[in-house]
Design a protein around this nucleic acid. Structure first.
Lengths: 225, 225
DNA sequence: GTCTATACAACGATAGAC
DNA sequence: GTCTATCGTTGTATAGAC
C-alpha cells in the first residue's frame, strides 16, 4: 500500500498525518476540512490527494499508523500470557487487562500523541461512515478473534454469546472511559476529583471484571423463541 | 422556544424532522446534506432554514423532540421508586433499571422510530461537535443530577467519585449495547445467535450491576501485581 | 406566515502546467 | 512532487410569491 510512496520525503506526508490526527480529534472527520489540515501542516491543498488519494484514505492512514502497533502490542501481551500459562486456562482478568490495559496505556501517552489518537479511536467505534467502519472491522478481526477465543476457553461455563456481548459492553465502557471524560464532566455538573490517568485503569478494570463475572442474565420463561 | 412556530401546519416541519432523524442515523450529521433531508421530506431546501434556522438547530430539534420525553419518563420512574421506598434507601438495581431500562425500552420501539433515535443518541455522546455536546449536556443535567444523587444515597459506602465513574462506564456499555450491535457483529466475525431485543435488557443489566457492585479499585502505592 | 427560487462562499476532488 | 485553476456540491442567507 505504501510502496508507491515509500521513498517520498517523509516531511510533508507525516506533517499531514500529524495535523489530521489532531484536527480530527478536535472537530471530527467531517468537521475538519482538507484546507484546515493542509494549512496546519504547511502543505498545499492538493498534497493530501497526492499522498493519500482522498480524505477517506487519509483517515484510514491516520488510523493504520497507530492501530497496527496497538493491536500488535495486544497480541504480544496475549502471546506472553498463553506462553506463561502453558496448558492451563488463562485468568479472565489477565485477558481483559491485556486488551484494555494496553489501550489505556496508549491513552495515557501524552508525549507521542497516543492520548489524542485513543480519543479519536474511541469515538470512531460508533462512526456511521461505512468506509471507516469497514476498515476498523478488518483491522480488528484478528485481535477480536484471538481475545474472544481466549475468553471462551477461560470461561467454559459461560455461553459464548454472553461472552461476546459482555466483551462488547466492555468496549463501550472503555470507549467512554477514554473519550468521554469531559462530556460526563459537563453532564454531571460536578468536577471530578482528579483526572489522574493512572487511576483510570484500576477504576475501569474493577468495573469490567465485575461486569464480566456477573451472574448470567435470567431471560425468564415467558418469551421462548 | 417553539412558540413562534406553534400554530404552523405540522406537515412540513414534522416531515423534515422525521426525514432528518432517519438520515442522521444512516449517514451521520455531516454525511447528511440539507438537500438529502428536504428531498426525502418533499420540502424545499430553504424550508429547513425557515423552520429551524440552521442545520445545527435542526439537529437540536431532532433530539429535543425525543429526549425530553425520554428523560421525563426516567424522572417519573425515579419519582415512583422514591415514593414507594419512603425514607428507605433505594436498591441500586432499581435505580439503574429506571435509567437504562427506560432507554432500552425506547431502543426496542421499532413502531414509532424510537430505535432509530436511540442509535443516533448513543453515538452522539462522543460527538465532537461542540454545539451538539453542549445541548446534550444541558438536556441531561437534571436527570444526571437526580440519578447520581439517588445512587449516592443508595451506595453510601462508595466514594462519590467512583459512583460517577461507574455511571459513566455504564453509559458507555449502554451506548454500545444500542448502537454497536452490527459493529461488533462485523468485528467478531461470528453471527450473534439472536438480536432479540427482549434479551438485551437482562444482558445489559447483569453486566451493569456486576460492574456497579464490583470491589472498589485498589490504586495501590506502586505497581504491585 | 409558509414556502420557493436563487445567489454565495467554502467544501472535496481533479486535471494539467511547471 | 508541487501548485494553480476549476468543477460539482455543500450550508446558509435573502428576496419575493402566495
Amino acid at each position: 500500500m505504501s510502496a508507491e510512496h515509500r521513498n517520498s520525503p517523509p516531511e510533508t506526508r507525516d506533517r499531514i498525518l500529524d495535523a489530521a490526527e489532531r484536527l480530527f480529534v478536535e472537530h471530527g472527520f467531517e468537521g475538519t476540512s482538507m484546507r484546515m489540515i493542509t494549512g496546519a501542516a504547511n502543505a498545499n491543498l492538493a498534497a493530501v490527494n497526492y499522498h493519500f488519494g482522498s480524505k477517506d484514505a487519509l483517515i484510514q492512514a491516520v488510523f493504520r499508523r497507530r492501530l497496527t502497533a496497538l493491536n500488535e502490542t495486544r497480541l504480544a501481551a496475549l502471546d506472553r500470557l498463553e506462553a506463561e500459562a502453558g496448558e492451563a486456562p488463562l485468568k479472565p482478568s489477565r485477558i481483559v487487562e491485556a486488551f484494555f490495559g494496553t489501550a489505556l496505556a496508549l491513552a495515557a501517552d501524552t508525549e507521542h500523541g497516543g492520548n489524542l489518537f485513543m480519543r479519536l479511536l474511541s469515538r470512531t467505534y460508533n462512526e456511521p461512515n461505512a468506509f471507516v467502519r469497514q476498515f476498523l472491522a478488518e483491522e480488528y478481526a484478528e485481535v477480536m478473534d484471538r481475545f474472544l477465543g481466549a475468553l471462551f476457553r477461560a470461561l467454559p461455563g459461560v455461553p459464548r454469546t454472553e461472552v461476546m456481548w459482555r466483551f462488547h459492553f466492555m468496549m463501550g465502557a472503555m470507549s467512554f472511559a477514554i473519550a468521554g471524560i469531559e462530556s460526563v464532566h459537563a453532564m454531571a455538573g460536578m468536577p471530578y476529583e482528579t483526572d489522574d490517568p493512572a487511576k483510570l485503569l484500576p477504576r475501569l478494570m474493577s468495573f469490567l471484571l465485575g461486569g464480566l463475572r456477573a451472574p448470567l442474565p435470567d431471560f425468564g420463561a415467558s418469551d421462548t423463541d
